[in-house]
């Protein structure tokens, strides 16, 4: 269990900053915290490949918030662009044009690209064993265009296209299990992370940086605007997602899954659901015990299958 790590406590957070202030992202954006922490570990020689997503706003002509290099790719083509960069760098290095640059390529997408629009490009890149990082900021909907449903949207939650009313109670589908879909491709490293667990997050990026091949991350991206919560609640909500067991923190090294945090006494999912307007209809005007129970049972079933 005890692996070499420089990240033992929050105080070990690197002091270099690779994100500048002044982005047009919403106040309290959970995704921005994730990117900030990930880049602190990956360092200055990281080329970020961005695709349409909220986080694409980190680069908005003529301004950019990322202090390392950055390339913008079409929605479904992040990993394909990463392949071009990785191959190009390798070709230049083999010709002696550049020397051992130690460059890392990080694809940064939202759930729209990761779960839906770009899934096939990721599948191809993992299958080809591309040496890259993929970070999906999962705010569980198409946040940048008005919060429409994506296949990452959780069951029974409101989005602008999964309505709530007398006849309907939000999304009727269950969230797609992208972790397992990625894992089925046999990449050397897959992990989930959350902003409220910065040490866990930094360790995972540190671990990944010692591995060659596809290294994939799904980060819970608390979205105060889309989820209907006050901006200051971002970390609180993030913590509740972890403590209720709704957002498991885990990694799979060469396919073997290990949970990096197991909430000893899981809080009822209700405590998480109640913090967000997208779940308000589960409590008002009448309490929907049937739906709350369905969500709870799903979470319980998940954790029953977790040994350790």
């Amino acid at each position: 269990m005890s692996e070499e790590t420089v990240f033992k406590t929050m105080k070990d957070t690197p002091r270099q900053e690779y994100l500048s202030p002044g982005s047009p992202l919403c106040a309290g954006c959970g995704g921005e915290i994730i990117v900030k922490l990930a880049l602190k570990v990956l360092g200055p020689r990281t080329i970020v490949v961005s695709v349409p997503s909220c986080l694409a706003l980190l680069e908005l002509y003529p301004y950019v918030s990322i202090k390392t290099s950055m390339l913008f790719a079409p929605f479904g083509a992040g990993p394909a662009a990463a392949q071009g960069l990785v191959d190009g760098i390798e070709a230049l290095a083999s010709k002696g044009v550049i020397q051992n640059p130690g460059t890392k390529v990080l694809v940064l997408t939202g759930d729209g690209a990761a779960y839906d629009i770009g899934l096939q490009a990721t599948s191809g890149a993992i299958q080809r064993g591309l040496d890259f990082y993929y970070l999906c900021y999962d705010n569980e909907a198409y946040g940048n265009t008005g919060f429409q449903y994506s296949s990452a949207t959780p069951f029974a939650s409101w989005t602008s296209t999964t309505s709530v009313g007398l006849e309907s109670s939000g999304n009727t589908f269950w969230k797609k299990d992208l972790f397992e879909i990625w894992r089925a491709h046999n990449p050397p490293y897959v992990a989930t992370v959350a902003a409220s667990r910065p040490v866990d997050l930094m360790r995972k990026f540190e671990k990944a940086s010692r591995i060659r091949g596809p290294k994939l991350f799904i980060a819970l991206g608390v979205c105060p605007t889309g989820w209907g919560a006050d901006a200051k609640e971002t970390i609180r909500i993030d913590k509740l997602a972890v403590e209720t067991g709704m957002w498991p923190l885990k990694e799979a090294i060469n396919g073997e899954v290990r949970h990096t945090y197991i909430p000893r006494k899981r809080k009822p999912v209700e405590e998480y659901l109640k913090t967000q307007k997208r779940y308000e209809h589960l409590f008002k005007p009448v309490r929907r015990d049937d739906l709350i129970r369905a969500i709870q049972e799903r979470v319980d079933r998940y954790w029953e299958s977790v040994s350790e």
Binding site: Y18, L19, S20, P21, G22, S23, P24, A27, L58, E59, L60, Y61, P62, Y63, V64, S65, I66, K67, T68, F72
Partner: peptide, 19 residues
Amino acid sequence: VALISAAGNSTARKTGAWR
């Protein structure tokens, strides 16, 4: 291409006005 030959120049946007 829309080329931005700068790193982290978003500091020019004074988002303090949002507060």
